[in-house]
Write a protein that binds this DNA or RNA. Structure first.
Lengths: 170, 170
DNA sequence: CTGGTCATGTAACCAGTTACATGATTAC
DNA sequence: GTAATCATGTAACTGGTTACATGACCAG
């Protein structure tokens, strides 16, 4: 990529910028709420992360923050700039990074399956099966149909894989 | 969980402790090599992360480090203690955390599919398809058969999902 | 009007990153 | 013998976390 360095985004920055672009002028708190509501649960969406992140984006000229109010409270409303739009596009369409596997807590543990007894392994897989099945209902409200389908595919894959490993005589 | 607080492990600590338990006495550098070679690519395995982590584990009594040598170089060799073994077991068998989805860079982007044009979306999915297909060969050497199968299932799921989305007339 | 929650932050801490330093080992 | 790389670290920076502070809003 011969992209200007100031346009490069971390994944959390990209996600935040996407939210701002989608939801029009937003306050930092609205972004916090979206992160918290997200089914991804990878970022906590803590205020201590989001508020400085928004200031960082503003300092880089990717968003503008206008001082305003929310009722009697004063608040800053953020909008993406053209430069922010470019940065967001570049991040969204970065196939190299999109193809990565990210972090998978189950795989991390199964790398050490040899350290478990058979009974422990069985218990773990059953516990994971129950909890994975429960994830099916937990769709985030803001997600697109495509993201939701990927979520569901992930769950289906997981359950099929678990079922096979739990099958008697395997 | 009524687990003593000093037994709780972060995911990176758990992974490191698993490596130490699997490979017998190891140096910090050996752990670095394993992290770097891991197909997960989530942690960089930087020395600046691993060396302090090993000291932290030692300070908590989960491993012991014995001063020794590697040829003429001096090095510290780490072994898990019984307490470390307990902590590792608790981390490995924590079904709640194992069932989590972790971080998925593709899903993070697809949450904003509405911000792409049709052509851009098509390009992205094709790029991801090519790169995902290439992942099939990239099995980590230290991984167990189960972890490898989960890796492969993830790839198959991804490819099936991508193929469906790229099918003409959908 | 008072107790709880919402909204907007700030501060201190912690863990992981890149970049650097240094000495041992290996390749040529 | 000298250059490259391996092995063992350290230091400074970054960014995300929890915990706290403060004032607005809302239910009884």
């Amino acid at each position: 990529m011969t992209l200007p360095a100031n346009l490069e985004l971390s994944d959390m920055e990209g996600a935040a910028l996407g939210l701002i672009a989608s939801a029009g002028p937003v306050t930092s708190y609205a972004v916090v709420r979206e992160f918290v509501a997200s089914p991804s649960e990878f970022w906590s969406g803590s205020a201590g992360a989001v508020y400085p992140l928004m200031r960082r984006l503003a300092a880089r000229g990717l968003v503008v923050g206008r001082a305003g109010a929310q009722g009697r409270r004063k608040a800053t409303w953020y909008t993406v700039t053209p430069a922010g739009s470019d940065a967001l596009k570049a991040w969204l369409l970065d196939a190299d990074r999109a193809a990565g596997m990210g972090f998978d807590p189950l795989r991390t543990r199964l790398a050490f399956a040899s350290l478990m007894t058979d009974a422990e392994r069985q218990d773990l897989l059953e516990g994971v099966t129950r909890r994975t099945a429960a994830l099916a209902d937990a769709g985030g409200p803001g997600e697109t149909a495509e993201a939701r389908e990927l979520h569901q595919s992930w769950i289906d894959m997981r359950l099929a894989w678990l079922k096979r490993l739990l099958a008697p005589g395997v």
